[in-house]
Design a binder for these strands. Structure first.
Lengths: 185, 185
DNA sequence: CTCCCTTCGTAACAAGCGTTACGGTAACAT
DNA sequence: ATGTTACCGTAACGCTTGTTACGAAGGGAG
Protein backbone atom coordinates (compact mmCIF):
# COMPACT_ATOMS: atom_id res chain seq x y z
CA UNK A 1 0.00 0.00 0.00
CA UNK A 2 2.70 2.45 1.00
CA UNK A 3 4.78 1.16 -1.87
CA UNK A 4 1.90 2.11 -4.15
CA UNK A 5 2.32 5.75 -3.18
CA UNK A 6 6.02 5.44 -3.80
CA UNK A 7 5.63 3.93 -7.28
CA UNK A 8 3.04 6.48 -8.35
CA UNK A 9 5.24 9.32 -7.15
CA UNK A 10 8.26 7.93 -8.99
CA UNK A 11 6.53 7.12 -12.27
CA UNK A 12 3.68 9.60 -12.54
CA UNK A 13 5.15 12.53 -10.68
CA UNK A 14 3.71 14.72 -8.01
CA UNK A 15 0.76 16.11 -9.94
CA UNK A 16 -0.62 12.65 -10.71
CA UNK A 17 -0.34 11.50 -7.10
CA UNK A 18 -4.08 11.21 -6.48
CA UNK A 19 -6.02 8.89 -4.23
CA UNK A 20 -7.40 7.08 -7.26
CA UNK A 21 -3.96 6.61 -8.76
CA UNK A 22 -2.69 5.17 -5.50
CA UNK A 23 -5.67 2.85 -5.31
CA UNK A 24 -5.09 1.69 -8.88
CA UNK A 25 -1.39 1.06 -8.17
CA UNK A 26 -2.30 -0.90 -5.05
CA UNK A 27 -4.93 -2.93 -6.90
CA UNK A 28 -7.86 -1.76 -4.85
CA UNK A 29 -10.39 1.06 -4.80
CA UNK A 30 -10.48 4.41 -3.13
CA UNK A 31 -12.57 2.95 -0.33
CA UNK A 32 -9.64 0.98 1.06
CA UNK A 33 -7.29 3.92 0.82
CA UNK A 34 -9.66 6.24 2.62
CA UNK A 35 -10.33 3.54 5.19
CA UNK A 36 -6.67 3.19 6.09
CA UNK A 37 -5.92 6.92 6.09
CA UNK A 38 -8.20 9.73 7.22
CA UNK A 39 -7.23 11.96 4.31
CA UNK A 40 -4.67 12.52 1.61
CA UNK A 41 -2.29 14.44 3.85
CA UNK A 42 -1.98 11.48 6.19
CA UNK A 43 -1.30 9.24 3.23
CA UNK A 44 1.49 11.49 2.04
CA UNK A 45 2.96 11.78 5.50
CA UNK A 46 2.96 8.01 5.92
CA UNK A 47 4.71 7.53 2.58
CA UNK A 48 7.25 10.17 3.52
CA UNK A 49 8.07 8.40 6.75
CA UNK A 50 8.33 5.13 4.91
CA UNK A 51 10.89 6.62 2.55
CA UNK A 52 12.87 7.95 5.47
CA UNK A 53 12.79 4.62 7.27
CA UNK A 54 13.98 2.76 4.19
CA UNK A 55 16.98 4.98 3.65
CA UNK A 56 17.75 5.09 7.36
CA UNK A 57 17.88 1.30 7.59
CA UNK A 58 20.18 1.15 4.59
CA UNK A 59 22.43 3.84 6.01
CA UNK A 60 22.71 2.13 9.39
CA UNK A 61 23.54 -1.15 7.73
CA UNK A 62 26.25 0.47 5.65
CA UNK A 63 27.69 2.33 8.59
CA UNK A 64 27.81 -0.68 10.90
CA UNK A 65 29.51 -2.86 8.33
CA UNK A 66 32.19 -0.31 7.42
CA UNK A 67 35.79 -0.87 8.47
CA UNK A 68 36.55 2.65 9.70
CA UNK A 69 34.85 6.06 9.93
CA UNK A 70 36.29 7.14 6.59
CA UNK A 71 34.85 4.12 4.82
CA UNK A 72 31.53 4.55 6.61
CA UNK A 73 31.41 8.19 5.59
CA UNK A 74 32.04 7.36 1.98
CA UNK A 75 29.51 4.52 1.99
CA UNK A 76 26.64 6.52 3.41
CA UNK A 77 27.34 9.49 1.19
CA UNK A 78 27.49 7.19 -1.80
CA UNK A 79 24.03 5.77 -1.20
CA UNK A 80 22.59 9.29 -1.22
CA UNK A 81 23.50 9.85 -4.84
CA UNK A 82 21.57 8.62 -7.89
CA UNK A 83 23.82 5.81 -9.04
CA UNK A 84 21.35 3.22 -10.28
CA UNK A 85 17.69 3.07 -11.17
CA UNK A 86 16.58 2.50 -7.61
CA UNK A 87 18.45 5.40 -6.06
CA UNK A 88 17.47 7.55 -9.03
CA UNK A 89 13.80 6.88 -8.35
CA UNK A 90 14.39 7.60 -4.69
CA UNK A 91 15.87 10.94 -5.65
CA UNK A 92 12.84 11.72 -7.80
CA UNK A 93 10.48 10.80 -4.99
CA UNK A 94 12.57 12.83 -2.55
CA UNK A 95 12.31 15.90 -4.76
CA UNK A 96 8.59 15.35 -5.16
CA UNK A 97 8.09 15.34 -1.41
CA UNK A 98 10.30 18.39 -1.08
CA UNK A 99 8.23 20.28 -3.63
CA UNK A 100 5.02 19.12 -1.97
CA UNK A 101 6.27 20.27 1.43
CA UNK A 102 6.22 23.92 0.34
CA UNK A 103 2.55 24.25 1.25
CA UNK A 104 2.24 21.38 3.73
CA UNK A 105 3.35 22.22 7.26
CA UNK A 106 3.45 18.63 8.47
CA UNK A 107 5.51 17.50 5.52
CA UNK A 108 8.02 20.29 5.91
CA UNK A 109 8.42 19.61 9.62
CA UNK A 110 9.10 15.97 8.84
CA UNK A 111 11.54 17.05 6.17
CA UNK A 112 13.45 19.33 8.51
CA UNK A 113 13.58 16.72 11.24
CA UNK A 114 14.98 14.10 8.88
CA UNK A 115 17.46 16.50 7.31
CA UNK A 116 18.83 17.60 10.66
CA UNK A 117 19.23 14.00 11.74
CA UNK A 118 21.03 13.22 8.50
CA UNK A 119 23.30 16.21 8.95
CA UNK A 120 24.08 15.22 12.55
CA UNK A 121 24.94 11.70 11.44
CA UNK A 122 27.40 12.94 8.82
CA UNK A 123 28.90 15.40 11.30
CA UNK A 124 29.41 12.57 13.78
CA UNK A 125 31.20 10.47 11.17
CA UNK A 126 33.36 13.38 10.03
CA UNK A 127 34.30 14.09 13.61
CA UNK A 128 35.20 10.44 14.13
CA UNK A 129 37.30 10.43 10.99
CA UNK A 130 39.10 13.68 11.91
CA UNK A 131 39.06 13.94 15.72
CA UNK A 132 41.48 16.86 15.83
CA UNK A 133 39.19 19.17 13.87
CA UNK A 134 37.25 21.95 15.51
CA UNK A 135 33.45 21.61 15.57
CA UNK A 136 33.19 24.44 13.10
CA UNK A 137 35.44 22.76 10.61
CA UNK A 138 33.54 19.50 11.06
CA UNK A 139 30.23 21.23 10.47
CA UNK A 140 31.46 23.05 7.40
CA UNK A 141 32.93 19.93 5.80
CA UNK A 142 29.86 17.87 6.62
CA UNK A 143 27.59 20.50 5.10
CA UNK A 144 29.70 20.59 1.96
CA UNK A 145 29.45 16.82 1.63
CA UNK A 146 25.73 16.40 2.23
CA UNK A 147 24.92 19.35 -0.03
CA UNK A 148 27.10 17.93 -2.79
CA UNK A 149 25.55 14.47 -2.74
CA UNK A 150 22.08 15.93 -2.49
CA UNK A 151 22.72 18.22 -5.43
CA UNK A 152 24.28 15.58 -7.65
CA UNK A 153 21.32 13.31 -6.92
CA UNK A 154 19.00 16.01 -8.21
CA UNK A 155 21.12 16.57 -11.30
CA UNK A 156 21.46 12.87 -12.09
CA UNK A 157 17.81 12.15 -11.41
CA UNK A 158 16.75 14.67 -14.04
CA UNK A 159 19.51 13.88 -16.55
CA UNK A 160 21.03 10.42 -16.00
CA UNK A 161 22.86 10.44 -19.33
CA UNK A 162 24.79 13.59 -18.48
CA UNK A 163 25.72 12.45 -14.96
CA UNK A 164 26.69 8.78 -15.07
CA UNK A 165 27.46 6.86 -11.91
CA UNK A 166 31.21 6.86 -12.54
CA UNK A 167 31.34 10.65 -12.61
CA UNK A 168 29.34 10.90 -9.43
CA UNK A 169 31.68 8.53 -7.64
CA UNK A 170 34.73 10.31 -8.99
CA UNK A 171 33.26 13.56 -7.71
CA UNK A 172 32.66 12.06 -4.27
CA UNK A 173 36.19 10.67 -4.01
CA UNK A 174 37.71 13.93 -5.21
CA UNK A 175 35.74 15.91 -2.64
CA UNK A 176 36.61 13.54 0.19
CA UNK A 177 40.28 13.75 -0.78
CA UNK A 178 40.13 17.53 -1.14
CA UNK A 179 38.66 17.94 2.31
CA UNK A 180 41.21 15.53 3.75
CA UNK A 181 38.70 12.81 4.60
CA UNK A 182 39.97 9.96 2.41
CA UNK A 183 41.96 7.05 3.78
CA UNK A 184 43.00 8.48 7.11
CA UNK A 185 42.97 5.23 9.03
CA UNK B 1 2.15 38.65 -16.28
CA UNK B 2 5.21 36.44 -16.20
CA UNK B 3 6.02 37.77 -12.77
CA UNK B 4 2.56 36.67 -11.67
CA UNK B 5 3.41 33.07 -12.50
CA UNK B 6 6.64 33.41 -10.62
CA UNK B 7 5.05 34.88 -7.49
CA UNK B 8 2.34 32.23 -7.39
CA UNK B 9 4.92 29.49 -7.82
CA UNK B 10 7.06 30.87 -5.01
CA UNK B 11 4.28 31.56 -2.52
CA UNK B 12 1.67 28.91 -3.26
CA UNK B 13 3.85 26.12 -4.57
CA UNK B 14 3.49 24.03 -7.63
CA UNK B 15 0.18 22.41 -6.76
CA UNK B 16 -1.56 25.74 -6.47
CA UNK B 17 -0.18 27.05 -9.75
CA UNK B 18 -3.49 27.15 -11.58
CA UNK B 19 -4.61 29.38 -14.40
CA UNK B 20 -7.02 31.12 -12.07
CA UNK B 21 -4.34 31.74 -9.45
CA UNK B 22 -2.09 33.27 -12.07
CA UNK B 23 -4.92 35.46 -13.31
CA UNK B 24 -5.68 36.61 -9.78
CA UNK B 25 -2.02 37.42 -9.14
CA UNK B 26 -1.84 39.36 -12.42
CA UNK B 27 -5.04 41.26 -11.67
CA UNK B 28 -6.98 39.95 -14.63
CA UNK B 29 -9.18 37.00 -15.51
CA UNK B 30 -8.52 33.64 -17.05
CA UNK B 31 -9.50 34.99 -20.46
CA UNK B 32 -6.36 37.08 -20.73
CA UNK B 33 -4.14 34.25 -19.57
CA UNK B 34 -5.58 31.80 -22.06
CA UNK B 35 -5.36 34.44 -24.76
CA UNK B 36 -1.64 34.93 -24.24
CA UNK B 37 -0.82 31.25 -23.91
CA UNK B 38 -2.43 28.37 -25.80
CA UNK B 39 -2.50 26.15 -22.73
CA UNK B 40 -1.06 25.62 -19.28
CA UNK B 41 2.03 23.79 -20.51
CA UNK B 42 3.06 26.80 -22.59
CA UNK B 43 2.53 28.99 -19.55
CA UNK B 44 4.82 26.80 -17.46
CA UNK B 45 7.43 26.66 -20.18
CA UNK B 46 7.42 30.43 -20.50
CA UNK B 47 7.85 30.86 -16.76
CA UNK B 48 10.69 28.33 -16.80
CA UNK B 49 12.51 30.24 -19.52
CA UNK B 50 11.93 33.47 -17.66
CA UNK B 51 13.58 32.03 -14.57
CA UNK B 52 16.52 30.87 -16.62
CA UNK B 53 16.92 34.21 -18.33
CA UNK B 54 16.83 36.06 -15.02
CA UNK B 55 19.55 33.97 -13.47
CA UNK B 56 21.60 33.96 -16.66
CA UNK B 57 21.64 37.74 -16.84
CA UNK B 58 22.70 37.98 -13.21
CA UNK B 59 25.43 35.40 -13.70
CA UNK B 60 26.82 37.15 -16.77
CA UNK B 61 26.85 40.46 -14.94
CA UNK B 62 28.69 38.94 -12.00
CA UNK B 63 31.20 37.18 -14.22
CA UNK B 64 32.00 40.21 -16.34
CA UNK B 65 32.55 42.45 -13.33
CA UNK B 66 34.84 40.02 -11.51
CA UNK B 67 38.54 40.74 -11.19
CA UNK B 68 39.87 37.27 -12.03
CA UNK B 69 38.52 33.80 -12.83
CA UNK B 70 38.69 32.74 -9.19
CA UNK B 71 36.57 35.67 -8.08
CA UNK B 72 34.16 35.10 -10.96
CA UNK B 73 33.82 31.45 -10.03
CA UNK B 74 33.07 32.26 -6.43
CA UNK B 75 30.59 35.00 -7.39
CA UNK B 76 28.52 32.89 -9.75
CA UNK B 77 28.51 29.91 -7.40
CA UNK B 78 27.45 32.20 -4.58
CA UNK B 79 24.39 33.47 -6.41
CA UNK B 80 23.21 29.89 -6.91
CA UNK B 81 22.75 29.33 -3.19
CA UNK B 82 19.77 30.44 -1.09
CA UNK B 83 21.32 33.35 0.79
CA UNK B 84 18.46 35.82 1.00
CA UNK B 85 14.73 35.79 0.51
CA UNK B 86 14.97 36.32 -3.24
CA UNK B 87 17.40 33.51 -3.95
CA UNK B 88 15.52 31.29 -1.52
CA UNK B 89 12.31 31.82 -3.49
CA UNK B 90 14.22 31.13 -6.68
CA UNK B 91 15.40 27.85 -5.22
CA UNK B 92 11.83 26.92 -4.30
CA UNK B 93 10.63 27.73 -7.79
CA UNK B 94 13.53 25.82 -9.27
CA UNK B 95 12.64 22.72 -7.27
CA UNK B 96 9.02 23.08 -8.25
CA UNK B 97 9.89 23.07 -11.92
CA UNK B 98 12.21 20.14 -11.39
CA UNK B 99 9.44 18.14 -9.76
CA UNK B 100 7.01 19.14 -12.50
CA UNK B 101 9.46 18.12 -15.21
CA UNK B 102 9.15 14.46 -14.25
CA UNK B 103 6.11 14.01 -16.48
CA UNK B 104 6.58 16.97 -18.84
CA UNK B 105 8.94 16.24 -21.73
CA UNK B 106 9.29 19.86 -22.80
CA UNK B 107 10.11 21.00 -19.28
CA UNK B 108 12.70 18.31 -18.75
CA UNK B 109 14.39 19.09 -22.07
CA UNK B 110 14.57 22.73 -21.10
CA UNK B 111 15.93 21.71 -17.72
CA UNK B 112 18.65 19.55 -19.21
CA UNK B 113 19.65 22.20 -21.71
CA UNK B 114 19.99 24.84 -19.01
CA UNK B 115 21.83 22.55 -16.64
CA UNK B 116 24.36 21.54 -19.25
CA UNK B 117 24.98 25.17 -20.15
CA UNK B 118 25.45 25.98 -16.47
CA UNK B 119 27.85 23.11 -16.04
CA UNK B 120 29.85 24.16 -19.11
CA UNK B 121 30.10 27.69 -17.78
CA UNK B 122 31.48 26.56 -14.44
CA UNK B 123 33.89 24.19 -16.19
CA UNK B 124 35.14 27.05 -18.34
CA UNK B 125 35.76 29.21 -15.28
CA UNK B 126 37.48 26.41 -13.41
CA UNK B 127 39.70 25.79 -16.40
CA UNK B 128 40.55 29.48 -16.58
CA UNK B 129 41.36 29.54 -12.88
CA UNK B 130 43.51 26.39 -13.05
CA UNK B 131 44.88 26.17 -16.61
CA UNK B 132 47.31 23.36 -15.81
CA UNK B 133 44.58 20.93 -14.79
CA UNK B 134 43.50 18.07 -17.01
CA UNK B 135 39.98 18.26 -18.47
CA UNK B 136 38.94 15.38 -16.23
CA UNK B 137 40.07 17.14 -13.08
CA UNK B 138 38.31 20.31 -14.25
CA UNK B 139 35.08 18.42 -14.91
CA UNK B 140 35.19 16.63 -11.56
CA UNK B 141 35.84 19.78 -9.57
CA UNK B 142 33.18 21.71 -11.48
CA UNK B 143 30.63 18.97 -10.86
CA UNK B 144 31.47 18.95 -7.17
CA UNK B 145 30.94 22.70 -6.98
CA UNK B 146 27.67 22.95 -8.90
CA UNK B 147 26.24 19.94 -7.07
CA UNK B 148 27.20 21.43 -3.72
CA UNK B 149 25.63 24.83 -4.37
CA UNK B 150 22.55 23.22 -5.84
CA UNK B 151 22.18 20.93 -2.86
CA UNK B 152 22.69 23.60 -0.24
CA UNK B 153 20.12 25.76 -2.01
CA UNK B 154 17.60 22.94 -1.64
CA UNK B 155 18.48 22.47 2.02
CA UNK B 156 18.34 26.16 2.84
CA UNK B 157 15.14 26.71 0.88
CA UNK B 158 13.33 24.12 2.97
CA UNK B 159 14.94 25.04 6.30
CA UNK B 160 16.39 28.57 6.31
CA UNK B 161 16.90 28.62 10.06
CA UNK B 162 19.14 25.57 10.02
CA UNK B 163 21.22 26.77 7.07
CA UNK B 164 21.92 30.47 7.47
CA UNK B 165 23.70 32.46 4.80
CA UNK B 166 26.95 32.62 6.75
CA UNK B 167 27.23 28.83 6.91
CA UNK B 168 26.54 28.51 3.22
CA UNK B 169 29.26 31.01 2.38
CA UNK B 170 31.70 29.35 4.77
CA UNK B 171 30.95 26.06 3.07
CA UNK B 172 31.57 27.55 -0.36
CA UNK B 173 34.87 29.11 0.67
CA UNK B 174 36.01 25.91 2.37
CA UNK B 175 35.19 23.86 -0.71
CA UNK B 176 36.94 26.29 -3.05
CA UNK B 177 40.01 26.23 -0.82
CA UNK B 178 39.92 22.45 -0.50
CA UNK B 179 39.81 22.01 -4.26
CA UNK B 180 42.61 24.55 -4.71
CA UNK B 181 40.45 27.17 -6.40
CA UNK B 182 40.68 30.04 -3.94
CA UNK B 183 42.90 33.07 -4.49
CA UNK B 184 45.16 31.70 -7.18
CA UNK B 185 45.72 34.96 -9.01
C1' DC C 1 -19.93 56.39 -40.02
C1' DT C 2 -18.95 51.75 -40.87
C1' DC C 3 -16.28 47.77 -40.98
C1' DC C 4 -12.82 44.87 -39.07
C1' DC C 5 -9.61 43.11 -36.09
C1' DT C 6 -7.35 42.71 -31.81
C1' DT C 7 -8.00 42.40 -26.97
C1' DC C 8 -10.00 40.63 -22.97
C1' DG C 9 -13.92 39.70 -19.64
C1' DT C 10 -17.99 36.31 -18.83
C1' DA C 11 -19.90 32.19 -18.58
C1' DA C 12 -20.10 27.68 -19.17
C1' DC C 13 -18.52 22.95 -20.17
C1' DA C 14 -16.63 18.25 -19.16
C1' DA C 15 -13.35 16.01 -16.43
C1' DG C 16 -11.01 14.97 -12.38
C1' DC C 17 -10.29 15.74 -7.57
C1' DG C 18 -10.86 14.67 -2.24
C1' DT C 19 -14.18 13.15 0.61
C1' DT C 20 -18.38 10.96 2.51
C1' DA C 21 -22.37 7.91 3.05
C1' DC C 22 -24.04 3.54 2.55
C1' DG C 23 -24.37 -1.38 1.83
C1' DG C 24 -22.61 -5.91 1.55
C1' DT C 25 -19.53 -9.59 3.37
C1' DA C 26 -16.90 -12.31 6.24
C1' DA C 27 -15.09 -13.45 10.70
C1' DC C 28 -15.81 -13.93 15.44
C1' DA C 29 -18.08 -14.16 20.00
C1' DT C 30 -21.96 -15.78 22.44
C1' DA D 1 -28.05 -19.46 14.78
C1' DT D 2 -27.61 -14.69 15.69
C1' DG D 3 -25.79 -10.24 16.71
C1' DT D 4 -21.62 -7.44 16.34
C1' DT D 5 -17.76 -5.65 14.45
C1' DA D 6 -14.16 -4.71 11.12
C1' DC D 7 -13.31 -4.38 6.46
C1' DC D 8 -13.88 -2.63 1.87
C1' DG D 9 -16.27 -1.88 -2.69
C1' DT D 10 -19.89 1.39 -4.88
C1' DA D 11 -21.71 5.44 -5.82
C1' DA D 12 -22.34 9.88 -5.24
C1' DC D 13 -21.55 14.77 -3.54
C1' DG D 14 -19.45 19.28 -3.92
C1' DC D 15 -15.63 21.56 -5.61
C1' DT D 16 -11.80 22.94 -8.55
C1' DT D 17 -9.44 22.40 -12.69
C1' DG D 18 -8.14 23.35 -17.81
C1' DT D 19 -10.30 24.68 -21.74
C1' DT D 20 -13.64 26.73 -24.99
C1' DA D 21 -17.28 29.63 -26.93
C1' DC D 22 -19.17 33.95 -27.10
C1' DG D 23 -19.68 38.83 -26.71
C1' DA D 24 -18.38 43.61 -25.61
C1' DA D 25 -14.98 47.46 -25.92
C1' DG D 26 -11.90 50.04 -28.54
C1' DG D 27 -9.02 51.73 -32.05
C1' DG D 28 -7.44 52.30 -36.99
C1' DA D 29 -8.68 52.12 -42.25
C1' DG D 30 -11.63 53.23 -45.83
Amino acid sequence: MSRAVWSVLAEQGLERLTVRAVAAAAGCTTGLVMHRFPNRQALLLHARRLLHETTRARVESLESSAADPCAALRAILRQGMALDEQTRQEAIVWMGFLAAAVTDTELIEEHRRNNRAWRARVERLVSAAAPEWTPQRVATAALALIAMTEGVAAYAAADPAAFPAAEQEAMLDAALAAHGLAGRS
